[in-house]
Design a protein around this nucleic acid. Structure first.
Length: 974
RNA sequence: GCCCAUGUGGCGGAAUUGGUAGACGCAGCAGACUCAAAAUCUGCCAUUCGCAAGGGUGUGAAGGUUCGAUUCCUUUCGUGGGCACCA
């Protein structure tokens, strides 16, 4: 009986589906365990082998936990709102709802073939109105909340209104203070304007990242190096009314929360960097000749005597007030220059620019006059938008001082060499008035106290993180449940949700940068006012999806409190690092808000996060001869470029290279090994679909047959060339077939790079079980590694070998009911121990290897006993569920193996009485000696010294010392 | 520039707490079975000296701690990722 994996896998997948084997109940006596994958965006490209890596890991762990007696929630869904579907709609006219539906169907079919244990009844799709109803609902909850700075938590905005009515404004942080009487006297619009300053989801005019090509604004983390993350289009700053989430209020809680979760250090570090907390001081410098002052932010108050100039962001209004008449023209000119520069320009060339304002600040301690400059290197949006420049300690300040010939005060003595700034905190201060002789680290505190005493400065914590932009001028996203009336945002009533996306025929932008929804006038204009035409960004739906899985069909609430109390936090979350500062931060924020408002009982969504590494692909390149056809035309005759063949008598005149190139038709592709040295830059590397390449050998015939764009191409090898179905050699022989070489390079796997490997093909060829195990066998889940399809044979051989423990091709059934020997039990229990340990610590690659060792060992002892084999099968369920279930039934077992009792490891079976000790002389292993494990030092020494090899190395001398580590080794020091 | 990872055979990787470096697999080589192929099985497989026995070297590099270092420390180089005029 053969291992017919295709039949077996189909059979069990159907049975499991029919029996609802993966149905998960919210009501169970078992302990719960929640395993979550980052749900995919269903792109049109389908899955490649890189995607399922994390899904397989989580599936293994889920199935393992289930065997161990847990009620395991392991759901899957789709993050189905987003830009690509809309871009595709613009290009093809297909409605995003349609393409999304089709793409999801493809994804589900691909996933199901790999045999995941998802409860599809819990599937969520963020673009489903029954889902985004609750996204909108949560948005309204956030909109109707404010952050109480004293209690550091979100509260309903109604409580703030109550406070305003009774006490007036208790804070001055967001808005100027007022009394309760004043509040009551404000009209509705004024009140709403004030409340908008406090809402956790709020709207304001702000500078946003505007991407003209995409026709939308982008969040900070969606902009990379001044261009859009998706598509790489230029991004400029633009003032627009936008929605934001007040994530900055949660900066501290988001930082503190990191202490409570099990994320990798690098992941935590990325989030900390993004939040960018810094401790420092705000200091007021009087401005000479005015009653104004200049407020700067610094993290180094200890350097205050080293301040040689001030720099203010050009955008600040203060600049206009303080500029001197002589400098006014220069200042305005500079500001105009700064405005003309985009972010991309700024990043591309970081040159030192700036302009003196003509104004001076006064150092409060030394009374020295300090010139005030403006420069684009100071950002308006961070701190106070102004800095005190200390050129001896800050690199940028030093370069600026150097460029403008500003004299530098050295306060750090020998630490400053005059040619480079030194940001040390160790130096003993000089030229620093009352700080002289003090260590910099200690001086900060002294300065801070003095500043506070004199009322000219205070301690201040700053964050690099900005409030998160929450609106997009797009169609394919959640509509905001907001109607604008007389400039006031009126939320829809919860009963009116979901506010469904209206159908549109065109996806072009609306007037004045608005989204496509602005074009549908009968949707936009309602009796109550004008609807908000932006939609929510991609991260809205994904910020809370893990809650919906707990209670996916509930029409009464986003997630029943009983369900969220039962399932609680996600115990294990698996996904890529690319969401470090986007999705993960936003879902942590939403969870905290929902917790503060009492909607759920925990304030961190993910207890443990594992980042799967990226599987890189291997791209194959062929080289196109890139002649511009102009001056250097020595190759334009009847010869192939760089090649000594006159082909005029091989091919007819009408298809000579010259004729073809003149018509812009013929292309020359060169085999990698035939590219002339030193001429590489005349060749244009082109990716070629990897299925045409085997070990750098290109199957030219198939490529040309399949892809018409190569039909008129010449493929030049060292010996000759291929053209229109025939090989030609230098000797004008038409028979010889030649080798066309590609070159290869590893890079990210993707369909567009033509290096994607489709899991479907592998599942058909080797089966899902082989595929799952091989993905794990590649290496540690968290490491990035290259894909190499060849290795899959090894894993497949292992499964076939396992099968042959049960069945022989000729004899058929060979498993028996005989009692297992001690040696066999030893193999079994060693494996139980190893698999359990490895699975627990996510070391799936070594677990696969342990299975191989086990099967090899069982083969060596010819063990075909059910007693041993059925236990192995249970261990194998998480990794290769189909073959495990099939063989389980072949062993005449009843019921499904998915819920079998996990074997327990019996340590007694592995106890040894003696061990082969490696004996080393001076740390180098020279011999192996079998010793009883219960020996003491003295006995061991005696036995070691009798050993021939040891005696030889001792050369008659006495050993200095003998180190004996029980159960490890013996080391003789000579 | 700053921060975080990481570096082991031809390749993917193993060595969990400082204790026999290279498990397991791929590729390769030699052989068995076969008319042949596939499948399967056996052996070899870091490097170097040696017929062999046996020895030298070896975990990016250089030092250090230790009886003993892939593992800990210092310096340095390479690769990958994150942040980046954030004062």
């Amino acid at each position: 009986m053969e291992y017919r994996f295709n039949e077996i896998e189909k059979k069990w997948q159907d049975k499991w589906k029919a029996n609802k084997a993966y149905k998960v109940s919210n009501d169970s006596a078992k302990p719960k365990y929640y395993v979550l994958d980052m749900f995919p965006y269903p792109s049109g490209a389908g899955l490649h082998v890189g995607h399922p890596l994390g899904y397989i890991a989580s599936d293994i762990y889920s199935r393992y936990k289930r065997l161990k007696g847990f009620n395991v929630l392991h759901p899957m869904g789709f993050d189905s709102f987003g830009l690509p579907a809309e871009q595709y709609a613009i290009e093809t006219g297909q409605h995003p709802a349609e393409t999304t539906k089709n793409n999801i169907a493809t994804f589900k079919a691909q996933l199901d073939k790999i045999g995941f244990c998802y409860d599809w009844d819990r599937e969520v799709r963020t673009s489903d109105p029954q889902y985004y109803k609750w996204t909108q609902w949560i948005f309204l909850e956030i909109f109707n909340s404010y952050f109480d700075k004293k209690e550091k938590k979100a509260k309903p905005i109604t409580e703030l209104v109550k406070q305003f009515e009774t006490e007036g404004n208790p804070f001055t942080t967001h808005y100027s203070s007022f009394t309760s009487e004043e509040w009551k006297a404000f009209d509705h619009k004024k009140k709403q304007e004030i409340l908008m300053e406090y809402r956790l989801a709020f709207s304001k005019y702000g500078e946003v990242n505007w991407c003209e090509v995409l026709g939308t604004v982008l969040a900070n983390d969606e902009v990379v190096n001044g261009v859009s993350e998706r598509g790489g289009y230029p991004v400029v700053k633009k003032k627009m009314r936008q929605w934001y989430l007040r994530i900055t209020d949660y900066a501290d809680r988001l930082l503190e929360g990191l202490e409570k979760v099990d994320f990798s250090d690098s992941m935590k570090e990325m989030q900390r960097n993004w939040i960018g907390k810094s401790q420092g001081a705000e200091i007021d410098f009087a401005i000479k000749g005015t009653d104004q002052s200049l407020k700067v932010y610094t993290t180094r108050p200890d350097t205050i005597f080293g301040v040689d100039f001030m720099v203010v962001a050009p955008e600040l209004n203060l600049v206009q007030e303080i500029k001197s008449t002589e400098q006014a023209a220069a200042v305005d000119e500079y500001i105009a220059y700064v405005k003309s520069r985009s972010d991309v320009d700024r990043m591309a060339e970081k040159k030192i620019t700036g302009c003196f304002t003509g104004a001076y600040a006064i150092n409060p301690f030394s009374q020295q006059e300090i010139p005030i400059y403006i420069s684009e290197y100071v950002l308006a949006g961070y701190g106070t938008g102004a800095i005190m420049a200390v050129p001896c300690g800050d690199d940028r300040d030093f370069k600026f001082a150097h460029h403008f010939n500003i004299p530098i005060t050295n306060i750090i003595g020998a630490y400053f060499n005059g040619t480079e700034a030194n940001a040390t905190k160790e130096a003993i201060l000089e030229n620093s008035g009352f700080l002289n002789g003090m260590k910099m680290m200690d001086a900060s505190e002294v300065v801070l106290q003095k500043l506070e005493e004199q009322g000219i400065g205070k301690r201040k914590v700053n964050y690099r993180m900005r409030d998160a932009g929450f609106s997009r001028q797009r169609y394919w996203g959640e509509p905001f449940p907001i109607i604008w009336t007389d400039g006031v945002a009126i939320p829809l009533d919860a009963a009116e949700l979901p506010l469904e996306l209206p159908h549109v025929d065109k996806y072009g932008p609306g007037p004045e940068g608005e989204g496509p929804l602005a074009n549908i006038s009968d949707w936009v204009n309602t009796p109550a006012g004008r609807r908000e035409t932006s939609t929510m960004p991609g991260y809205a739906g994904s910020s809370w999806y893990f809650l919906r899985y707990m209670d996916p069909q509930n029409n009464e609430t986003f997630c029943d409190r009983k369900a969220s109390n039962y399932w609680n936090q996600v115990d294990l979350y698996i996904g890529g690092t690319e969401h470090a500062v986007g999705h993960l931060l936003y879902s942590r924020l939403w969870t905290k808000v929902l917790f503060d408002l009492g909607k759920i009982g925990f304030d961190e969504p993910f207890r443990r996060l594992v980042n799967q590494g990226m599987i890189t692909g291997v791209s194959e390149f062929i080289y196109r001869y890139a002649d511009d056809g102009n001056s250097d035309s020595k190759f334009m005759g009847t010869q192939i470029p760089y090649f000594d063949i006159d082909i005029s008598d091989l091919l007819s005149e009408s298809i000579t290279p010259a004729a073809m190139m003149a018509k812009g038709e013929g292309q020359f592709y060169f085999s990698y090994d035939s590219i002339p040295m030193g001429e590489e830059n005349r060749f244009d590397p082109r990716r070629v679909y990897i299925t045409y390449v085997d070990a750098n050998k290109l199957d030219v015939e198939r490529l040309v047959k399949d892809d018409s764009k190569y039909f008129k191409a010449f493929f030049v090898t060292k010996e000759g060339f291929y053209f229109r179905g025939k090989w030609y050699t230098k000797e004008k022989d038409l028979s010889g077939k030649q080798i066309f070489m590609t070159s290869s390079a590893g890079e990210k796997m993707s369909k567009s790079k033509l290096n994607a490997i489709n899991p479907d093909d592998l599942v058909i060829k080797y089966g899902a079980d082989t595929f799952r195990m091989y993905e794990m066998f590649l290496g540690p889940v968290e490491a990035s590694k290259p894909w190499d399809t060849k290795g899959i044979e090894g894993v497949h051989r292992f499964l076939r070998k396992l099968w042959r423990l049960f069945f022989d091709d000729i004899k058929g059934k060979i498993w028996t009911d005989e009692k297992a020997t001690d040696a066999e039990l030893k193999i079994l229990h060693r494996t139980i121990k190893k698999i359990e340990e490895d699975t627990e610590r996510f070391s799936f690659n070594t677990a696969v290897s342990a299975f191989m060792i086990c099967v090899n060992d069982l083969f060596d002892v010819k063990c075909h006993k059910k007693e041993v084999l059925e236990k192995i099968l249970i261990l194998l369920v998480p990794y290769a569920p189909h073959i495990a279930e099939e063989l389980w039934h072949q062993l005449d077992n009843a019921g499904t193996i998915l819920d079998a009792a996990y074997p327990t490891f019996d340590a007694a079976l592995l106890v040894e009485s003696s061990k082969e000790y490696p004996v080393s002389i001076n740390g180098k292993v020279r011999a192996n000696i079998n010793l009883a494990l219960n020996l003491e030092q003295a006995e061991v020494e005696k036995m070691i010294l009798q050993n021939e090899v040891v005696q030889k190395w001792l050369e008659g001398k006495d050993p200095k010392k003998i180190i004996y580590v029980k159960n490890k080794m013996v080391n003789v020091v000579v």
